[in-house]
Computed example of a mutant assay.
Amino acid sequence: MFRLTDRSNLSHADVVLFGLGYATLIFTVGYYVTGLHDAFRTGFAIEDGPVEWGTAVCLLLSSLVLLRNACVLRGRGRLAVAMTALYALAFFFAAGEEISWGYRLFDWEATEFFRENNAQGETNIHNLVVGDVKLVKTLFGGGLSLVILLYLLVLPLVYARVGALARLADRLAIPVADTRHMILALAATVVIVAVQMMTKWESYEFVFSLLTVSIFLRPRNAEKVT
């Protein structure tokens, strides 16, 4: 039966992470209901602004936490270590992509390939255009959002009910979200669906990055994957 667990109590890290998450949602709703959409786009959620950099930092932290977990798992089998290291690499890649690998921070000049094939002329993969297809709308668009929702909202419910899937998740060292993570993920999804602002997804990405740090630090199946 699905129920709250002891890990639903907030740790000191969670107080900070969840505080930032809920504050971000409150600010996003505040900008929306007051009609300050341009201020949201050019301030709070601006390119290279606090939300985007916060997302990049949290994705990098998530990668580092996963690397720590991989070291802890060395005595529990190669598969668990390899999968956790792979997850860490994926989040490191995501952190780099979020800030275009320092394109604006270090004032790098994009190569000819990226100038010709990147929708924004920057050094990142997710804005590449292949033919008439923009990767940000295909591989990194709705499909990725669906995978994230399945991970945050569906997997924890199934993990608690289906033993075979729980054993598979543990074998693959997948950190499973706990109740507190599901509540914030659901709140963020409701907010993002409700508000209609151009750069609202920046808030969603930031909340997701905060959630991953918390999940990887103390998941539902912590005794199996950390």
Rank of each mutant, 00 (worst) to 15 (best):
G30Y: 13
L36C: 13
H181Y: 11
A70V: 08
S214C: 05
T5I: 09
N9M: 01
L184W: 02
L172R: 05
T123H: 08
D170L: 01
R171W: 00
R180H: 10
G35N: 15
D38Q: 09
M198H: 07
W108P: 04
F2D: 09
L20P: 11
V193A: 10
F208S: 08
K224E: 15
L210T: 05
Y87D: 01
V15A: 13
L172P: 10
D6E: 11
P50W: 02
E47L: 10
N117I: 00
Y159M: 02
E223W: 09
C71Y: 11
H37F: 07
G54M: 13
A90W: 05
V72I: 10
D38K: 15
A169G: 11
S100L: 11
Y103W: 13
G43C: 06
C58T: 01
T189C: 08
E52G: 00
V207A: 03
V130W: 07
I192E: 07
V176A: 06
Q120D: 12
T34M: 01
V29H: 05
K224I: 04
R7I: 00
D107Y: 15
L210K: 09
D6H: 06
W101K: 03
V193M: 12
R68G: 13
L4W: 11
R74C: 05
L144K: 09
A187M: 03
V51N: 06
A80L: 12
T212D: 11
I99F: 12
V129F: 04
G142R: 07
V81W: 03
L66W: 00
E223G: 09
H126T: 03
F113R: 07
D14E: 14
A39I: 04
V162Q: 06
W201Q: 08
F18Q: 08
F216H: 13
F2T: 07
V176L: 08
I215M: 03
Y159H: 01
N124R: 13
D170Y: 02
V51K: 06
F27Q: 04
P219V: 10
L4H: 10
